[in-house]
């Protein structure tokens, strides 16, 4: 488990009043910041909001948005809504898991991808669909398209490293 950068927590907590109603919004912020909910942070939230740790833990494990282990750089949500299901989404998912060598939905060991299933993102007209990083929706998927989709983000994930020398030279210039 990586070292938790606790200094990010306080400014984040400052934005919210210490009220129970803010528990879920705070956890959402933490999830966005760390890509998971670190144990230490949950304990801090429990003390600050005066909500028993058992309940914070229960909330953190109840909702699908939260994860207690780090998620990958790219979160691929494969829609398994009814429309996607009847149009062959399970096969697309299977293909993706096989390509990433995952036994089931989860995160690859190199923390590049997290594959999740989601029940309907409301693009049923374009079934089957997958959404990457909560923003880019890929319509009309087939097994053949899966490889290309993953490759696109794989390259993107590695791109910043390659781009760095360029940036550096720009800065010098």
């Amino acid at each position: 488990m990586p070292q938790v950068e606790m200094e990010k927590v306080e400014p984040l907590l400052e934005q919210f009043e210490d009220q129970r109603i803010n528990l879920i919004p705070i956890l959402q912020e933490v999830q966005d910041t760390y890509r998971y909910l670190p144990q230490e942070v949950l304990k801090r939230i429990s003390r600050k909001l005066r909500v028993p740790l058992t309940e914070v833990y229960q909330v953190a494990t109840f909702y699908r948005c939260f994860s207690l282990v780090p998620r990958g750089k790219h979160v691929v949500q494969v829609c398994l809504g009814t429309a996607c299901h009847v149009r062959g989404a399970p096969r697309v998912l299977d293909r993706m898991l096989r390509d990433l060598k995952l036994a089931g939905p989860g995160t690859t060991p190199d923390l590049q991808f997290t594959v999740e299933t989601v029940r309907c993102i409301g693009c049923c007209g374009l079934a089957p669909v997958a959404r990457v990083d909560n923003a880019n929706t890929h319509p009309h998927l087939t097994q053949a398209k899966v490889g290309g989709l993953l490759k696109k983000y794989q390259e993107k994930a590695e791109a910043p490293k390659a781009a760095k020398p360029d940036e550096a030279s720009h800065a010098k210039a």
Partner: peptide, 12 residues
């Protein structure tokens, strides 16, 4: 909280 798979009118 439109959760039914196959329904997206509230979103729309």
């Amino acid at each position: 909280d439109e959760g039914d798979p196959g329904a997206f009118m509230d979103r729309s």
